[in-house]
Amino acid sequence: MSTMWERLRTVTQSRIGQDRIGDTVSSTEVLQFRAAHAMARDAVRQPLDVQSLLEGIEGLGLGPAAVVASRAASREEYLRRPDLGRRPADLTTVPEGLGADVGIVVADGLSTTAVAAHAVPMLAALREVFAGRLTLAPVVVATNARVALGDHVGDHLGVSTLLVLIGERPGLSVSDSLGIYLTHRPRPGRRDAERNCLSNIHPPEGLGYAAAARTVAALVDGARLLGESGVRLKDSSHQVTG
């Protein structure tokens, strides 16, 4: 690669200045691309290792987590039928009416590798920011799940504010990015405009756990004060987080 392309590669992640062979690119470039795509595909297609995740959560001292499956029976059905991923198959494993301040659902979403890599340390950081201030309901792990599945879980748990930690749709450069969606007074039928979202959590390149946890804590405080989450909370969260 020429010196100028090497320098320009520092101003954008774009695949500029690829080594050209004839009208196409070198084998190295083709294979690099294919490896990145393979990681992104595996992130979507590989099922979540629920057992390891449960052990990790237990190891944090957050107690045993409940597991909920969505109505999508497979990864393929999950991709084809977003409506099924938004609804739990059965909530009998989840404790009812606990009335805690904050509930947390860990959902596989579109990247199981993101959840495998970042969910447990993210939970540790969240536990720290809420410790001594707000009560946490037991964590619920949800498989083949989309964000809105959390509304059913949060309603069932009876929590004031629900956080859904979920794997984000993988890109070629980052396939393990975690997002957190906050819904105040969760109940089935909440619209996306009634949520707040923090995305791009994947240290070291993306947002770190402690910084994400501080922002989430500020959003939770803001939602409790405002009595709602969503578009109106978004504006004030800038003030809270600076």
């Binding site: 992640q13 695949r15 690119v25 691309f33 749709r169 070629l172």
Partner: peptide
């Protein structure tokens, strides 16, 4: 797009 990889929209188009 450069190298078929749109780094803003997170999808693959043509290069």
């Amino acid at each position: 797009v450069p190298g078929a990889d749109d780094v803003m929209l997170g999808y693959q188009s043509l290069s």
